[in-house]
């Protein structure tokens, strides 16, 4: 007798919270990419001289820009957190029989994140 093959709904990612959170995680890439496209535009305008540059700066001051930034930022943060939390799955360090606890590895990532962010901010805003 022929076995029954169930259909797997395209909405599977709505069926359970972990699946939904996975999809959100994957979707963060869209916001990150959109921001990168903006960066391309930014650099292009920068290369066009002061007038073009200040036009972008004006744009950045618009409420719409600020709102979009905030939304994108939330997703970007979600990306960073999930990314760092998953690294211990990939990098397993062992000393003899003992495995370095995962939280130390993700912890190191989070510290690196803070440091990099501070340096970037310092270079752009201060130096």
């Amino acid at each position: 007798m022929k076995p029954y093959v169930r259909e797997y709904p395209n909405t599977w990612w709505l069926s359970r919270r972990p699946y939904f959170l996975f999809m959100v995680r994957e979707f963060t890439a869209v916001f990150v990419a959109a921001y990168c496209v903006f960066l391309i535009y930014f650099v292009y305008k920068l290369s066009q001289g002061p007038d073009a540059y200040y036009g972008v700066i004006e744009l950045l001051r618009s409420p719409l820009s600020i709102i979009l930034h905030i939304i994108a930022f939330i997703f970007a943060i979600y990306h960073s957190i999930t990314w760092f939390n998953l690294t211990p799955k990939i990098f397993i360090l062992r000393f003899g029989e003992e495995q370095v606890p995962p939280f130390l590895i993700s912890g190191a990532n989070f510290i690196a994140w803070v440091v990099v962010s501070a340096i970037v901010a310092w270079i752009i805003l201060v130096v």
Binding site: P18, Y19, F22, L86, K89, I90
Partner: peptide, 26 residues
């Protein structure tokens, strides 16, 4: 593998197949 990670969550023996797969990618 897209690293959903649920395989490791449901594993009754803590095998962590998701980790095994990511290490395989590296």
């Amino acid at each position: 593998c897209t690293f959903v990670g649920e395989c490791s969550e449901v594993c009754p023996k803590d095998v962590d197949p998701a980790g095994a797969i990511q290490r395989g990618k590296v």
